[in-house]
Every structure is written in C-alpha cells, then in structure tokens.
Design a protein around this nucleic acid. Structure first.
Lengths: 347, 347
DNA sequence: GTGAAAGCGCTAACAC
DNA sequence: GTGTTAGCGCTTTCAC
C-alpha cells in the first residue's frame, strides 16, 4: 500500500511492540491500564512509548472500542457572550476527563437535522451537548430513541425524558421583580426572551407571580415580546416608553435586551436610573461595563457548563442511568441601574 | 462479537450493498463520486442510502483514507468577543466545505504541548488553525517539520514558513493615530497589546510612525504596557492620567483595553470626549454599546475566519503548496469618543 | 464497470 | 500474564 501523503509514517502500537519486545496486545493493555501486567514489560512499553513519541490513533480506537473520547456541542452560533462562558466550563471539565470537544453550529444544518443527527451519532462523538439549538425538538426524539447520550443545557421542562442542566430562572426573575417592587415601582415593563426557550417562559412566569403576590394587577401593555437580542429589546423598550402611562422600571429578560433599553432611554434624553430603572438577566461581562452598571441576575454559567459536561460523561459511561436534572441557583446582583421611582404612581 | 452497548446497530455500507444488490465496494464508489458507474446501480445505491438513512462513519473513513474531514482550532480560551466572530467565519467556510470543527483550548495543555501536537496530528484532524495560542512557537516547528497542514491566524511575521491570515494592523493603527493628530492632539497616550502577538507590535510601530511623520517627538511616558484586557487597560489609563502632563487622547490597542480607559476616565469624573478622546481597535460588538460609542478600527474578523479556513483546506488538499499569506484591510470607524482637545497644547 | 480482498490502528475475546 | 486473532467500517488496489 502506498504511503499516504508526504508525512512521515505514524508510529503505531506495532512499532512500540517491536521496540519493547512484546506483542502488541500487551502494549494495548499497558496503554489501557490493564491491571495484571508484568512490571518489567510495562516499563519497557512505557519507555518505548515515550522514546518513539507514540500517541494513540483516536480514530482506530474509536472505531473498534466504540469510544472516541470526543463529545459534540450543538449550538446555534458563537455570538452570544453567554455561550463563551458555558463553553469554558464545558472545556474545563472535558480537559479534566481527557475528552475533546467538537463544535457543531446549527445554523448551517437548516434542512437536514435528521441527517445531521445521524452523522453526529455515528462514530465521531460519544455524546452530545445541546445548547439552545434551534429546532431542538427535532433532535431530542432521535437521540432519546437511539439511547445516544446527550444533555440539554439551559432548557428545562421541554420534555420529561431529557437530562438537563440549567439555572433557576424562576427564582432569579422573581427576585428581580420583587426588588423593583420593593423599591416602590408599580408599573414594571417586561421584555420577554426567545419564545422557544424555557428560560424565557420561566422568567415571565416569575415576573407575573411576583406582581400578583404584591397585589399589582397584570397589565398586558407592559409585557413586550423579545428574543434575547439588543435590537428587539430596543424596539420593545421604545414601545414601552411610548405608552401613555409608561413604566417606571423595565425588566429585560436578558442583558442583551437591557442594552437595547439603554439605547432607547438614552435616545430620548432620559436618564437611568433617575427617570427609569432597568434590570437585566445573565450578568454578562458587558453588564459591568455599561453605564450605569447594570443591575441583573447572575447565572453561574461556567458551572452550568461544567455540570453539563460532567453529567454527559456519566451518561456516556452508563447510557441507561436514570434521568438526572440539575438546576443551579441564580443571584440578584445589585448595581447602579435601579432606584425608587421619581413620582410615586397614583393608585 | 458482542454488540457494543445498547444502541441499535448502525447501518453500514454493507447494509446498503445488500439492500441495493451490489457489492459494497460499489457503494463506496457511488458515495465517493467515482465516475464510471452504471447509472442504474448508482440510483439503486442512492435509494438504499436514503431509505436506510445511511451516513458514513467518519472514523472508519478517516482511518483508511487518511482524511477525517475535521479540522482543529487551537485557541487560548473563548472569552474574547473577538474569538466568536472569527470562529463564526471559520464555521461558515467549513460548513460549505462539509468539514467539522474540533475545538482545543490551550490553557489546559500547559506542560504537554508536544504530546498535544502529537495527538492532534494523529488521526483526528486533517489540519489545524492556530488562533493566538500561548506558546505558539512550541507548535509551529513540529507542525512544519511534519508537514502537517496548519494556518496561523492573526499573527504574522512570527517566522518565514508559516501560512498566516491576518489584518493590516499597521495601517489601521496609523489611520487611528493620524485621525487623532488631525483633530489637533499632540499628546497621545498609547496602551499596548499582548507582547507575544505581532498585532500589538504592528500597532505600536504604526503609532510611532504616525507621530514621527507629524513631527511629534516620541515621549516614552505616553506608551504603557497592556495585554489586551480591560483590567490592564484600566491600570495603564490611570497611570497615563496621573502624569503631570496627561495626554489629551488615548489610543488603546484594542477595544477591551479602551473599556478600561473608559472606567478610569469616569472614575475621575472626567468626560469622554470633552476631557479626553479615546480610540480603540477591533470594533468589537461592545464598541457600539458603550457610551459614548467608541471610535475604533474595524477588523473584518468574520472574513479572517473564512480566509483562514479556506486556506487551511487548500493545504490539506495539497500539503506542499507554496507559502501563502493573507492580509485583510482594516477600517477606521468614527463614532463619538473623540474630539479636538480642549486647550491646544503649548508648544 | 464491478466484485473480492487487503489493510488502516486498535481493542477485546480467546487460547495457552 | 501474554500472544494470537478477529473484526470495527471503510477506501483502494487488483483482478476479471
């Protein structure tokens, strides 16, 4: 068989075996930490390995053993700050477990989800992490049916069989709303998140609950659609500000949207927090950079990533282990974007 | 041989062959677009493929063919906004070429670079993209020596044999400095970037050149070390502001550092741009979000990513092709953070 | 044009 | 304990 390409031939397990004077299955055993091996031979193999600079071929190992030590991450895109932190957590945990990460953005797989899942589940990766991919549902059934290990990140309550890791959106949003109410606000605008995410639904539900608990009547006009990006946040804020009775505070379902609120407020010559209070959700890196610094709800994103990776690896180890779901706490971070309303609302 | 795991057996090329009534090498030929195939058989194979939902096992294909259709991206971490856009570009190009992306963060490989490169170059990936990894030099020699396809992103002039894709830092920084000078500034502070990057060196060189060309004497006090992050930018800005003769404008080598300048300026109760002008570099998403919107130099990051991926794939195709280097243009984006100095400097 | 068969590097029975 | 061997799924000669 002709040499493939110009590169020097890779050193394989056979080379190591020859060098160490053992059979190559012994080499394999040493490499896989098989217990009962003659210490001398083990040492000889180890020496040969380092001498030759041998590194296992992952493809071959994956092909036969069924494990590639690679996990996939399905994600819409890398734009959100949000993703970076979660990935960092995933990476940390994966490094610890000596696995690699394969990135798969979904925007590029528009019309071939099934095909894609096929590809994904075939060979290259041992498990899949799903971070808010669009069309989530189209993957879940296939994945579950095939018992392919996966974990859904930040999207709880979608079904009742998928392992998930997420944060306590409800209590975070409840704390934020309650904080605003405690400051004296009665008209609190809400800019919702991406409707296909459970986080958005939970945050809205908590907002409603807090209002109701405080005896504040629900006002449909105060809740605006959004989708977690700045542009839509800006539009929503403007429509809120255009109300004949505008809110004295706005709770944006994420920091990105809150940025849109900042824009809208500033463009009208109003001031935060004097004229209007703003609160976000995420505690993205930008939250502390904007002026005034944004009061927001912190999500432990790195921890989310770590937990997701850890949980996934457990499922890779044992595909039929019982359903496990992790919910991490959120925390209200008070900074400078909120204060009591100027004129108390007339009841 | 016992079934591995609980998952249903994958459909392989043999299943397709059986279903289509041909030999499995014919299936392989159809799948690889081999030209001379009986149209009937080709169609039968194609039908069987879609009927069975067959997808090639990448590991097996990679093992025998030497191509995995996966490329690696070596990167320090995912924190920088900067990285997200480049990765997006890489991903777009890779999607087009039907390749996958494997992420490898370097912070986790601290003391085993060589081992790592071994692993990387063995089997799993066809080529490697290097985005400002720490210890870059430790990889390059090995990679080059093995003729393993790779492209260095955003780091030109490190050696004379590595293919690179980057931006024209020099002209960008020159334009920024010249713009400030044109506004009337004579004392212009400079906050440098990570010393182990060529971009930082080029930006500093251009700053110096522009000053010299304008007949402004170089003042050592006005140039401060930085490392492309906000914290160091803040420290640098404070030391600049503490000068007995502080600058009237500060050019930060990237937007992140400029944010640190904003902080420092604000903490002293000064205003941008009235009291001091600030200019950045990158045009990161945050540049337009801060207040006042940051004047900066835009880098076509998505294009950088696209070009890098495209170039890498060329090298994968033909490892011995001649050295190619790509430099993309930068552009000064004028926003609201600069204006002429209040009091013209006394000569 | 197409089938048979070798073999990529490795793990995991199976012998001894 | 350790060597021998089959075979993972696929591409690629080599025949015909």
């Amino acid at each position: 068989m002709a040499a493939r390409g110009i590169r020097p031939r890779n050193v394989t397990i056979k080379d190591v075996a020859r060098e160490a004077g053992v059979s190559y299955s012994t080499v394999s055993r040493v490499l896989n930490n098989y217990r009962y091996i003659n210490p001398d031979k083990r040492q000889r193999v180890l020496d040969a390995v380092s001498h030759l600079g041998y590194v296992a071929n992952l493809q071959a190992r994956g092909l036969v053993g069924g494990r590639s030590r690679v996990v996939g991450l399905l994600i819409p895109d890398l734009n959100a700050q949000y993703a970076g932190q979660i990935i960092q957590g995933i990476d940390e945990e994966l490094a610890f477990a000596e696995h690699e990460l394969m990135l798969q953005t979904t925007h590029r797989h528009k019309n071939k989800e099934t095909l894609f899942v096929n590809a994904v589940t075939r060979g290259m990766i041992d498990g899949l992490l799903l971070l808010l991919p669009h069309e989530l549902e189209s993957y879940l059934d296939v994945l579950h049916e095939r018992q392919f290990p996966y974990v859904v990140i930040d999207h709880q309550g979608f079904d009742d069989f998928s392992p998930t890791v997420g944060v306590d959106n409800w209590h975070g949003a409840y704390a934020a709303t309650t904080y605003l109410i405690g400051l004296g606000h009665r008209r609190i605008g809400f800019i919702a998140g991406r409707t296909d995410t459970s986080s958005a639904a939970e945050r809205l539900a908590a907002y409603n609950a807090a209002l109701q608990e405080a005896g504040i009547a629900f006002d449909h006009d105060l809740v605006r659609p959004g989708d977690y990006n700045q542009q839509r946040g800006n539009v929503a804020a403007n429509s809120l500000l255009n109300l004949s009775q505008p809110p004295t505070a706005i709770f944006a379902a994420n920091d990105q949207s809150a940025l849109g609120v900042y824009e809208a407020v500033r463009s009208r010559g109003l001031r935060i927090p004097q004229d209007i209070s703003v609160i976000g959700f995420d505690d993205a890196p930008l939250a502390i950079h904007v002026h005034p610094a944004l009061t927001t709800v912190r999500q432990p994103l790195i921890e989310v990533g770590r937990n997701a990776a850890r949980l996934l690896l457990k499922y890779v180890e044992q595909p039929d282990r019982p359903l496990e779901r992790v919910t991490l706490p959120t925390e209200l971070i008070i900074r400078d974007s909120c204060q009591p309303p100027m004129q108390m609302p007339t009841a």
